[in-house]
Structure formats: structure tokens, C-alpha cells
Design a protein around this nucleic acid. Sequence first.
DNA 1: TCTGGGGTCCTAGGACCC
DNA 2: TCTGGGGTCCTAGGACCC
Length: 399
Amino acid sequence: MSPSAPTLPQSSAPHQVAARRWIAHLDMDAFFACVELLKYPELRGEPVVIGGGRLQQPVLQEDGTRQFARMRDYVGRGVVTTSTYAARAFGVFSAMGIMKAAKLAPDSILLPADFEAYRDYSARFKQAVANLCPIIQNVGIDEIYVDLTEHGEQAPAMAARLKAAVFEATGLSCSIGLAPNKLLAKICSDLEKPDGLTILAPEDIATRVWPLAAKKINGIGPKATAKLEALGIVSIGELAQADMAMLRTQFGDLYTGWLRQAALGIDDRPVQTSRETKSVSRETTFERDLQVVRDRATLSEKLESLCTRVAGDLDKQSLAGRTVGIKLRFEDFSTVTRDITLPSATADAAAILRASRDCLRRVPFEKKIRLLGVRISALCDPAVVTRQAPAQAELFPAL
DNA sequence: TCTGGGGTCCTAGGACCC
DNA sequence: TCTGGGGTCCTAGGACCC
């Protein structure tokens, strides 16, 4: 195949006339931050940053006004979960360390994340969409894909109705990308944020998608971006024209093939309305790094608590699991995991704790510990648990 | 002043089995 | 002197996403 002149995906191959799909990606605008603005309308227009747990709630004063924490007063660990557009203007974005963000915007207001409220608003906006269009895939708390194919040429009008319905149900704005597949819809929803409605036809790919940075493609992260840049590839168009053999020097066959397809805007994945849970986990970053010997009691306590929470999550979801694993992050940010597969599935906190301790014994402890996590996978219905695997004695008759 | 928490998927080597 | 081979499970690590 010639490396020059990439061809656009054909809308209909001669042997197989695929119906054109209309896929919407709906993304709530600065979701957590906007929910907070509904709670605290006096903050509208202010730079506001939402951070992870362990933060102070606003204090209600005697005169009825609220006293908010400022970024500059923050000391400790933690990252920015999200921020209002006013805060983003200072360069404060998600995943940035709060201490670093405080340097950029010391006077910004800092609020703790209120996941209960976000889940509530999430359910509301998803229900509003479901009332109009039932084929929905949950992506996260603030994003969904919606299959609007059945609306045909009316899909853009339906997308506009979805935006209105979401606003009516929540008082919040969202941005929608409407395109022939999920990959393009996702790229699109980001083009006119906030409150955008962006429609992309296959013939627009060369003019509207190819000029964008390759990292705008969902699935091209920091590592792949760096490798692509080393090959002189920055834009999606450059990726579409790149020599496959050259790409293969950096990426495996599978990923290379996917990169090319993605750059051409080809994506056949369906909108998946349901998926089963594959794993359940809980982890915690300590306020200070812990030492195995000196902080043994604290570590033991944390481990127990994590196992209890995992067991609670399993119970809530009516699940049990057979593979129990632990995760440790050390002071230098290096991470190790250990796991063990049990003879039969469990949802019991004590059993998970025993397995976790077995795993921990296999970890070399030379550095201080920053994070501890517990995970369970190989999940199944707890009703299956009674079907025991062979006992140890049967598995190892010689012993 | 470093870098949260909850997930999914992929790779790769070794054990083990037929 | 030598190289089976395919399939599945288990374990560890890493990239990526929201």
C-alpha cells in the first residue's frame, strides 16, 4: 500500500452497504465544578477548584454567608479533580497537584469533592437522555454515548433536544459531538466546549479532524504521544499518512493497526448498553509515607479497612471474586502488585484480608510506602461460591 | 510542592496439560 | 543430540481513561 495520499473511509463498500450510523457523545461541561456552583451560586464566575477528599467544607458564618477555603492555605497531598473555566484560565487543570495549582491561582476557592451530589446529578442527566433515547453507554459519571441511528437525518435535531432536556433536568450544560462513530463523536464533543453541539460528517474528517493533535484521539496517551512525536508525527493527519512499517518499529502490530484506523476515522465499536464488572478495588494514599516496621499497626489497620470496604462493595453489587491482589506505591512512586487466586470465590472481608496478607509477604520492603490498595477480580455470582474447588489435599496428594 | 481513586485492556513469561 | 505445539491459567506490570 502506498504510504502517500491516505484515502478516506468509504461510506459504503460495494459489497456491503453499511447503514450510516449517528453516534452522539455527550459530555457534561466541567461537571463537578458546575454542580458545586449550583450548591454555592455566590461563586459563579469565580475561579473554583475541586480537590479530592480530606478538605474542609465551607463554613457557614453567623451572618449567613459562607467562608470558603482558598488554595493558598492548602498544605498536603492531593490533586485537582476539576476546576471552573475561570480557574482554567489560570492554567489549573485536572490531575495537577493542588500545591502546584495553588502557585498558579492562590486566590482560587478550594472545595472538597461531593461525590454523592455528583452521582445524584449524573443519574438525573442520564435519565433525561434515556427518556428520549434508550440506547446509552455509560462511560463515566459525566459522559455517555447515545446511538441516534434510528433518527436518521433527524439525529442533529434530536441531539439538540437532548441538550435541552439535560439542562431542564439539571440546570447544567453539556457538549455533544455527533458523528458516524464513537471515536469521532468523542473528538467532536470537545471541539466547541462548553455548551457545544458539533456535527461531523465523514467528508469533514480531512478538514476538521486531521489538523488536530494525535493525542486528541481517545487511546493515544502520554507515552504513545511521545513516541509519535519522536517519529515526527504530531497531527492526526500526519498519523494517517505515516508509514505503517515505521509505526511498527515503535508499536505492536495490533496497536499500529488501530492507530491507522483511528487516524482515518474508522471505528466500528457498538454503543454498549451494559457491561459486567471485572474487578472491585479500594486504595488509599497516606498523608505521609509509612514505614513497614515503625508504622506496622497503622498499615495493618489501613489494610483491614480496605478489605472491609472491598467486601462491602462486593456485597452491594452481589459479587464474589477468586483473585485477590494488593498494590503498593512507594515513596519514589514505583508501584508493585501481587495477587493470588483462591480455590474458590469469596466476598468475605476476613478471607480477603488473609489473602492480602499472603500477597504482602511476597513484597520486598525497602522503601517507605505511599499508597496501599486491595483489589479482587475473577468475579462471579456469590451463589456459585458454594461449588467448592478440590481441597488442598486433593490438589497435592503427595503432600 | 510532585503526582487521587476507581476502573479496563494488553502483553508477556512460566506452569501445566494433552 | 536436542528444539512439538497449542490452549489455558496464573502472575506482574504498564498504558490509558474518567
